[in-house]
Design a protein around this nucleic acid. Structure first.
Length: 257
DNA sequence: ATGCCTAATCGCATTAGA
């Protein structure tokens, strides 16, 4: 079973790229972030024609998350983090697919830091931490996939010293990610590629992709019961080189049945 | 210290991304 995460940076502007990639790789489950489309403007029919059923949580202009399942429709289990706190940003959606809980998240960017956006990022991270702990307590097989907007370690940044004060790399944020993983989650990509420089994002600026000036910020975390099933974890980095590409590349894992 | 590039919304320049 192949599960992918892809920050599309505009699901309508990116539709040809998304469909081309779906056709090429045929993942079983796909988590999308940054739809940048209101609920009624999600391209459900075009994606259905490609063979995928979808649930999504849209928002005008910004954010937005979706889960696609090949040959079916994901059974939605949550929309927004389940702590009852008011949050007008569409950043979390969750479904049951093939006996797994799939959480699709778009963690806030948080720049500029310090400031209210950075505070919101840390608060959102704390809410995710609390809910992730609940998932582990329930003992369900779960994948938390998405754009975490965190480079976990220096190995995940092309030039760490340049990013020390950035909201994606500040110590508080790296600590929050480490604390989340320490609950018992497995960082799939790092698990299978220890010590390797792997990026999932390349800025549009300064010819970053050609220079391989990238960041690893899209992650797939596995609950303990799923960790032994991890067979592969890769980045479809060639997709970043396509015409009209997103600044993120699709990232995926393969789990044994 | 700032803009670079790109999308969305707008209807031309601004906001946000990371």
């Amino acid at each position: 079973m192949r599960i992918a995460t892809f920050n599309v940076n505009g699901v309508n502007g990116r539709l040809p790229v998304l469909l081309r990639w779906l056709e090429e790789t045929r993942p079983d489950v796909v988590c999308l972030q940054e739809l940048k489309a209101p609920q009624e403007k999600f391209p459900e029919d075009a994606i259905a024609k490609a063979g995928y059923g979808t649930i999504w949580h849209g928002q005008k202009s910004w954010n937005g998350v979706a889960i696609l399942a090949r040959g079916g429709k994901p059974l939605e289990t949550r929309r927004g983090l389940p702590d009852g706190l008011a949050d007008d940003q569409s950043r979390y959606i969750e479904a049951a697919v093939n006996g797994l809980v799939i959480g699709c998240l778009y963690l806030p960017n948080g720049n500029p830091a310090p400031g209210p956006k950075f505070d919101y990022k840390l608060a959102w991270f704390a809410r995710l931490h609390a809910y992730a702990a609940q998932l582990l307590e329930m003992g369900v097989p779960a994948v938390l996939a998405g754009d975490y907007n965190v480079m976990p370690t220096e190995l995940d940044v092309y030039k760490p010293e340049r990013w020390l004060t950035d909201a994606l790399f500040r110590p508080e944020v790296r600590d929050a990610y480490a604390a989340l993983v320490a609950q018992g989650w497995t960082d799939s990509l790092r698990q299978l590629h220890p010590g390797e420089r792997l990026y999932t994002f390349w800025d549009y600026f300064r010819n970053a992709y050609a220079r391989d000036a990238g960041l690893r910020i899209d992650h797939l975390l596995l609950s303990p019961s799923l960790a032994p099933a991890l067979k592969a974890a890769e980045v479809d980095r060639h997709v970043r080189g396509w015409e009209k590409a997103s600044d993120h590349a699709p990232t995926w894992i393969e789990l044994a049945d």
